[in-house]
Nucleic acid binder design. Structure first.
Lengths: 333, 333
DNA sequence: TTGTACGCGTTATCAT
DNA sequence: ATGATAACGCGTACAA
């Protein structure tokens, strides 16, 4: 437990018999004679010196940290996204800071205000609900933000979004091709970003294919627990659907559970499609056909956009749309 | 996109007509007259001032950040743990930095060296494999570390561990009570911290209960994909077990999948028990009986230990053992 | 090529 | 109670 102090530029300079400026230059790959370079390098190695992050941040005006704000650290799709971002940043000088804001929009705004403190150079924001106050806070922000998820027009910020309509369309085409006609939709809350997009995607997709929705239900949340009663509601009344499209994988797995309790077989009696293609889809039994709305790619692109902007702040605001794809598994075969 | 600069103490001081020292005092709740306090507070509000994190960190010698290093951001049990830590830290002045080190022990050591840079005040480390080099790096570290998971004796560091033996015992007692006698064990790699602990827990537990293990198999990894062939191996030869204890939930779910493919019914033909009690256990179909080895509590305790130590570095190294519990669900009923 | 010296924005010490 | 000022450790403009 020896509390030896960190070594500083001065210590290295003394040891190498040069000035701190020379040490700094060597470390930052600025011109220096081979002689000094060598002396400095060995002094650095002997002392185990590493520049102090705060001092460096203060001097260069950048923290070399990127913050990511997600609604729920527990949701598998956010987990995928964090993993992806963390991988992209691994190749850069940036470190990743995690801010779990919960569902609370106030907490997200709070976070935005706090970024003024300079502990991050940029933010990847994945809001569940987009309020006027949030977009206002985004516009007001001094530092670069990339928002993952749809935004109202006119918010001048880098943005990466999914194409839910096309994604739902992939699911519908697949279901129709495999002979399903009475297709129900189990959504999450419609006042959320994904809830709104997936709802309108479903409605438009059904209309385009001249199908009549068997039923549309809305779970209170994008969770397994909330999915159970909502799935039961889908089955409670009217003609039984022969397929149920669910707004995420957790809802789909809840649906499969409820179908099982009703003695219905998947996919023979009812086909089930999830969205997000999270780990749960592969792991489910039967394995779950799922629309991959590009969560991994969206987060990867978001991280790249942010790193680019930090290198060149003059870039105009960009918008990227990531194409969906469908992974067909046992639940619809 | 107005690039207005951050406001500083000086700006606030000018606006309030006082010195920067007074502003600092007001902000840090040091004695100041009501008059100055008021002037400063309103200036702060008008300018939207917030102290610069790096400057503060440089001056006070602390970053107010805590790093967490996990082997795989994707594993649901680590996700649980991050969520828990992030919640504990939410009530403190500390922010959370995420370092996904992968399985690579070298990367973890790298991380430890890099903490010298002062971008974190403490570390929560959850190593999958503990090598001599890792424990050496831990002992060498200048800043406080809390390790989650078992460690060799003599590493003088705060440590929170599970009680795998007791946990496995809970599962065995439950299986025996419900009439199972031919109990197999599907482990992950035995050269990992959890793999070693769970193996010896199983062997000791079986012996104590005078049971003969039906079979012990070892998956190449704690993942669903690695679980599939390993579960098949358990069923391939010898008398069929009537219960399979799995070293985590992902392996258990893989086992259930394979059992289904063999036309075996759960729990009638074979009972299945998982470990970690992750979200997947509730969500599985049939829902999975799982040994909760206290992942949530371990991470909560770890975060609290670290915060305590940062408040009082003179504390002796502490060791906490978190008690397991069993959640009985459909897979063994 | 190298060294000296300043400033980044805070907090804390010391006078007043 | 308040203000001037010194440090924290680094990067760099400037001088040599």
């Amino acid at each position: 437990l020896a509390l030896e102090r960190r070594s500083t530029l001065h210590a290295v300079a003394d040891r190498a018999g040069v000035s701190i400026a020379s040490v700094s230059r060597v470390l930052n790959d600025l011109p220096a004679s081979p002689e000094t370079t060598a002396r400095v390098r060995s002094a650095v190695a002997e002392l185990g010196y590493a520049p102090h992050a705060a001092a460096r941040a203060l001097r260069v005006g950048a923290s070399e940290q990127i913050a990511i704000a997600v609604a729920d650290v527990g949701n598998p799709v956010y987990v995928q996204m964090m993993r992806e971002v963390s991988e992209v940043l691994g190749d850069t000088r940036f470190r990743l800071m995690l801010s779990s804001t919960g569902n609370d929009p106030a907490a997200q705004i709070d976070l935005l205000e706090n970024l003024n403190r300079g502990y991050a150079d940029g933010l990847i924001l994945i809001p569940l609900r987009v309020t006027g106050e949030l977009t206002a806070a985004i516009s007001r922000s001094r530092l670069p933000i990339v928002v993952i998820g749809s935004l109202p027009d006119g918010v001048d910020v880098d943005n990466v979004r999914a194409d839910s309509a096309t994604g739902v369309g992939l699911a519908l085409d697949h279901l129709v091709e495999t002979g399903r006609t009475r297709i129900a939709f189990l959504n999450g809350p419609r006042d959320t970003v994904p809830g709104a997009a997936r709802h309108s995607g479903f409605v438009a997709g059904m209309k385009k294919r001249k199908l009549l929705p068997a039923r549309i239900a809305e779970a209170a949340d994008f969770t397994f627990d909330a999915g159970l009663p909502a799935a039961a509601a889908v089955l409670a009344t009217g003609e039984r659907p022969d397929a149920i499209v669910c707004a995420n994988d957790l809802l789909a797995i809840a649906t499969m559970k409820v179908l099982g309790e009703h003695g219905l077989s998947i996919p023979v009696d009812v086909a089930v499609v999830g969205m997000d293609d999270s780990d749960m889809a592969m792991v489910a039994n039967p394995s779950l056909t799922s629309v991959d709305l590009g969560a991994r790619e969206r987060s990867r692109v978001a991280a790249e956009l942010l790193v680019e902007r930090l290198a060149d702040p003059s870039l105009p605001a960009r918008r990227r749309v990531v194409a969906p794809s469908l992974f067909v598994r046992e639940s619809t075969r």
